[in-house]
Amino acid sequence: MEVRTIKVFTTVDNINLHTQVVDMSMTYGQQFGPTYLDGADVTKIKPHNSHEGKTFYVLPNDDTLRVEAFEYYHTTDPSFLGRYMSALNHTKKWKYPQVNGLTSIKWADNNCYLATALLTLQQIELKFNPPALQDAYYRARAGEAANFCALILAYCNKTVGELGDVRETMSYLFQHANLDSCKRVLNVVCKTCGQQQTTLKGVEAVMYMGTLSYEQFKKGVQIPCTCGKQATKYLVQQESPFVMMSAPPAQYELKHGTFTCASEYTGNYQCGHYKHITSKETLYCIDGALLTKSSEYKGPITDVFYKENSYTTTIK
């Protein structure tokens, strides 16, 4: 009895394709271990004539594949690729409408935090270190965002349907971005203890939790000093293409032309909904596939993004 075979390709990165001759009487799992086709788990399936010449994702289970996976995804987590594939199996079914010149995501599976993050990423200057993220990001900007969303979920250790947080998501993504040249110098002034300067680099240099107003941050924000008295913390120097200011959701007025974009969060910790506000020729609110415009805006804002380049204080 002759062994019926077909020729397929296996890959971990969709760049390096490895030619395989597979036995049609055995499952993919018996031949390769966990195997995925377009995100779908085909591990328990036997090869079919229609699979001839198709590319299958496999887990990096030998040295060659491990090197290829690390170079593309910059992670050695053995569960990463499987999590990416199972997320992709959902995100490829989502709709990605162009809204006001940006790629958004039609609401499904509690994905409003991903839509808000995706919209924000198209408006701030950011370059990702893992080629996987950078490639998928370019495709997302062009309207094909399924891979990018699935990668975000995998890097953030999230599953489809789980509630997510924009600030946490951005923080994970910033860790995989090139923020080497970003720098922030802060000064804390206390009447009792004097003053202390701190220099922050990388992710810490672009994120701040405690106030939404970048102007206020430049002037000074009140913080408790270690001595128990009130101290003032203010920005001395900022070198970065953008800054992200966050605070627990509270009524906040966004003035046209003073910011790049913002995240609105309605609801409580267990259950809520994100919308995205962007400042173009007027203010726009993007909620999944829905767009509304207004000249002014007041609502429960939790993150505001500002364009920056270089700032030095005039406070002496």
Rank of each mutant, 00 (worst) to 15 (best):
E2K: 12
E2R: 11
E2M: 11
V3P: 14
V3E: 15
R4A: 13
T5A: 13
T5W: 11
K7H: 15
K7L: 11
T10H: 07
T10E: 05
T10N: 09
T11I: 10
T11K: 07
V12K: 07
V12P: 07
V12S: 06
V12T: 06
D13G: 06
D13L: 03
D13V: 06
D13T: 10
L17E: 09
L17S: 08
H18D: 07
T19A: 13
T19E: 15
V21G: 11
V21I: 13
V22A: 15
D23C: 12
D23W: 12
M24Y: 10
M24V: 14
Y28K: 05
F32G: 06
T35K: 04
L37H: 13
L37P: 04
L37A: 11
D41V: 09
D41Q: 13
V42A: 10
V42Q: 12
T43Y: 09
K44G: 14
K44S: 11
I45Q: 15
I45W: 13
P47G: 08
H48I: 14
H48E: 14
E52V: 13
K54H: 12
K54L: 15
K54V: 12
K54F: 13
Y57D: 06
V58R: 07
D62V: 07
D62K: 08
D63T: 08
D63P: 08
L65P: 05
L65Y: 09
R66C: 13
E68D: 05
E71Y: 07
E71W: 05
Y72M: 09
T75S: 14
T76F: 12
D77R: 04
D77M: 05
P78Q: 09
P78I: 09
P78A: 10
S79N: 11
S79K: 10
S79W: 08
F80K: 04
L81H: 09
L81S: 02
L81K: 04
L81F: 14
Y84E: 03
L88E: 06
T91V: 07
K93L: 11
W94Q: 01
W94M: 06
Q98K: 11
Q98D: 09
V99E: 08
V99G: 07
V99H: 13
N100G: 12
G101S: 05
G101H: 01
G101D: 06
L102H: 07
S104T: 12
I105R: 06
A108I: 06
N110L: 04
C112A: 04
L114H: 03
L114T: 04
A115T: 12
T116E: 05
L119C: 07
T120G: 05
Q122M: 05
Q122S: 03
I124R: 03
E125H: 07
L126H: 03
K127C: 09
K127S: 13
F128C: 02
F128L: 06
N129Q: 07
P130F: 03
P131M: 05
Q134G: 06
D135Q: 10
Y137C: 07
Y137W: 07
Y138A: 15
R141Q: 09
R141Y: 06
A142S: 13
A142T: 15
A142N: 12
G143A: 04
E144R: 08
A145I: 02
A145E: 03
N147K: 13
N147P: 12
N147D: 14
C149W: 07
C149Y: 05
A150D: 02
L151C: 03
L151W: 02
L151H: 01
I152A: 07
L153E: 05
A154L: 02
Y155T: 00
Y155F: 00
N157I: 03
N157C: 06
K158P: 00
K158G: 02
T159Y: 12
T159N: 11
V160T: 02
G161C: 04
L163P: 14
V166I: 06
V166F: 12
M170P: 02
S171V: 13
Y172V: 11
Q175G: 08
Q175F: 06
Q175P: 10
H176W: 15
H176L: 13
N178A: 09
N178Y: 07
D180E: 11
S181K: 14
C182T: 01
C182P: 03
C182Q: 01
R184G: 15
V185S: 05
L186K: 00
V188R: 08
V188G: 07
V189F: 08
V189R: 09
G194L: 02
G194V: 01
Q195H: 11
Q196P: 03
Q197I: 09
T198I: 15
G202S: 04
V203N: 04
E204K: 14
E204W: 06
A205H: 04
A205F: 00
V206E: 04
G210H: 01
L212R: 06
L212F: 01
S213Q: 03
E215D: 14
Q216Y: 05
Q216E: 12
Q216F: 02
Q216L: 07
F217G: 03
K218I: 04
K219L: 10
Q222D: 07
I223F: 13
I223E: 10
P224Q: 14
P224N: 15
T226K: 15
G228V: 01
G228C: 01
K229I: 08
Q230K: 12
Q230F: 15
Q230W: 14
A231M: 01
Y234I: 11
L235F: 01
V236Y: 08
V236S: 05
Q237E: 11
Q237M: 12
Q238W: 00
S240R: 00
S240M: 00
P241S: 08
P241C: 05
F242P: 03
V243H: 03
M244P: 01
M245N: 06
P248D: 09
P248V: 06
P249R: 01
P249K: 00
A250F: 07
A250E: 12
A250Y: 09
Q251E: 14
Y252E: 06
E253A: 11
L254M: 02
L254I: 02
L254R: 00
K255P: 07
K255T: 11
K255E: 13
G257Y: 00
F259E: 00
F259P: 02
T260C: 11
C261A: 05
S263T: 12
S263Y: 00
E264G: 07
E264M: 12
E264P: 03
Y265F: 15
T266D: 11
G267I: 08
G267F: 07
N268H: 14
Y269F: 12
Y269K: 14
Y269P: 15
G272Y: 00
H273T: 02
H273Y: 00
Y274P: 00
Y274L: 01
Y274T: 00
K275Y: 00
H276L: 09
E281R: 04
L283Q: 01
Y284S: 10
C285W: 00
D287M: 03
A289R: 04
A289S: 11
L290N: 15
L291T: 15
L291G: 09
L291W: 15
T292W: 06
T292I: 08
Y297R: 01
I301A: 00
I301C: 00
D303G: 05
D303A: 02
V304P: 00
V304E: 00
F305E: 00
F305Q: 00
K307G: 07
K307T: 15
E308T: 11
E308P: 10
N309V: 14
S310M: 15
T312K: 07
T312C: 11
T313R: 13
T314F: 13
